[in-house]
Design a protein around this nucleic acid. Sequence first.
DNA 1: AGTGAAAGATCCTTCTT
DNA 2: AAGAAGGATCTTTCACT
Lengths: 145, 145
Amino acid sequence: MLDAVDRLIIDALTKDARISLKELAQLVGLSSPSTSERVRRLEERGVISGFTVELSHEALGYMLQAIVRIRPLPGKLHIVQDLINETPEVVECDKITGDDCFIARLFVRSISQLDEILDRIADKAETNTSIVKSQPVKRRHPPLA
Amino acid sequence: MLDAVDRLIIDALTKDARISLKELAQLVGLSSPSTSERVRRLEERGVISGFTVELSHEALGYMLQAIVRIRPLPGKLHIVQDLINETPEVVECDKITGDDCFIARLFVRSISQLDEILDRIADKAETNTSIVKSQPVKRRHPPLA
DNA sequence: AGTGAAAGATCCTTCTT
DNA sequence: AAGAAGGATCTTTCACT
């Protein structure tokens, strides 16, 4: 599906998405036109879905990260889902199988802010909150086999 | 900390990190030099930590996503941590407070591949696995207040 | 699929206000 | 922070392998 060159291209763009085509071509050992065509096709195929910027949560003042498992009370599922969506500190939320229905990642500035946010859900769902102590594996791509 | 223009810049770069300075300047309503200086300072301050590429897991053949809570057996913590690290299908792992020690996100091609990976941990930790059914909130930035 | 050269377009930064 | 301008840089096209 992806050959070695495609993987080199993705690796390079992962490290710096703003690299010029010329530099990228040198890195992967192809000419500029071929490299350009490769990138175009990776986008066309949907393998590359976009180019984006990474922010530092700490630099933005979000010193705390929490993982919250959320089990809506009977009949409250949609209300809870809306509430999650409207809480901008929820940076990611998955609907999952099992006893818990949702699992969400929150960025907060302080424990008191976390408490505040959880209070808003308290009468609509059972929650189970864990504080993130460290990140043994930071966001990375899966194998590009 | 960030003013309105900084936020516009980050919004624009989030949507397309490869946008040219000229276009970015037009979007935020400043001149190119000012915009260039803004971006430079955002990087310098560490707010912008990098530019990267987004991949489509589905296009790569990872049709299944799982959330696994992992509680290492007594004395097995380091072995488990190493194992997690060496499993490339683990795209993210946090060390958290509470009964479970780790929580990991896995991309897999099939249930059988998931089973295979979990089997490797089975004699070193208790695991609790949930399949991701949908993503009510896809990865997004927290408020840039 | 890929190369190499070349032209044309685009861009970024510098300088002045 | 704006605006103009110069010079560098880049990307794509084309003919060929």
